[in-house]
Amino acid sequence: MTRLHTALVAIVIVICGLGVRALWDGPVAKYAGDALYTALIYALLVLLWPRIRPWTAGIAAAALSWMIEFAQLASIPRWLQPLLGSTFNPPDLLWYAVGAAMTAVAHAAYTRRG
């Protein structure tokens, strides 16, 4: 996957995240946002390391998302809260894993196709 393709995927993920927030409210938007947040982290990892294997990127993206979530148990600086959140929510951990797994499956299918 080229860096250009990966950058385009990252842009599409951001657009999807903004679209979900604009169209829905409540748990659908929140948990879809969690999955997309991890998908964006995944895309950024692939952007940095284009040869990373899909499952390695998936595990790393989920781990980074979980680290950020667990950091919310401590005090996140106020200026970072819009990006990283401020309240620990255990169901978020599941949706981060879902986002990482779905993105890894899509990436693996794309690389097998090519």
Rank of each mutant, 00 (worst) to 15 (best):
Pro50Phe: 05
Gly19Trp: 14
Leu64Asn: 14
Pro50Tyr: 06
Tyr37Met: 03
Leu45Trp: 03
Tyr42Leu: 04
Met67Gly: 15
Leu45Asn: 02
Gly19Pro: 01
Pro27Leu: 10
Leu48Arg: 14
Pro27Gln: 13
Val28Tyr: 07
Trp55Ser: 00
Ala22Ile: 08
Gly58Arg: 01
Arg21Gln: 15
Leu94Cys: 05
Ile52Asp: 01
Val28Lys: 12
Ile41Pro: 02
Arg78Asp: 09
Tyr37Gln: 02
Lys30Trp: 13
Tyr37Pro: 00
Ala39Tyr: 10
Ile76Leu: 06
Met67Lys: 03
Gln72Met: 04
Pro91Asp: 05
Ile59Pro: 00
Ala62Lys: 05
Gln72Lys: 13
Thr56Glu: 00
Leu64Ser: 04
Ile52Cys: 11
Ala97Leu: 14
Pro91Ala: 01
Trp66Ser: 07
Asp25His: 14
Pro27Trp: 15
Ser86Cys: 08
Leu73Ile: 06
Thr38Ser: 03
Ala60Tyr: 08
Arg78Gln: 14
Leu94Asp: 02
Arg21Asn: 10
Leu47Asn: 10
Ala35His: 04
Pro91Asn: 03
Gly19Tyr: 13
Ala60Arg: 14
Gln81Trp: 08
Pro82Val: 05
Trp95Ser: 00
Asn89Cys: 03
Tyr96His: 04
Thr56Cys: 00
Ala60Gln: 00
Pro91Tyr: 08
Arg21Trp: 06
Thr38Phe: 06
Gln81Ser: 01
Leu73Ser: 05
Asp25Ile: 12
Leu40Arg: 07
Ala97Pro: 10
Lys30Asn: 09
Ala97Ile: 09
Ala32Gln: 05
Ala22Pro: 07
Leu44Val: 15
Gly33Pro: 04
Ala60Pro: 09
Pro77Val: 10
Pro27Arg: 12
Ala39Gly: 10
Leu23Arg: 09
Gly19Ser: 15
Ser65Asp: 12
Thr38Lys: 03
Ser86Pro: 07
Thr38Pro: 01
Ala60Asp: 07
Asp92Gly: 07
Leu94Met: 02
Val20Gly: 08
Tyr96Leu: 02
Phe70His: 09
Tyr96Asn: 00
Gly85Ile: 07
Trp24Asn: 01
Ala29Cys: 01
Leu94Glu: 00
Ile52Gly: 01
Ala60Leu: 15
Pro50Asp: 07
Ser75His: 15
Pro54Trp: 14
Ala74His: 11
Ile52Met: 09
Ile59Thr: 11
Gln72Phe: 05
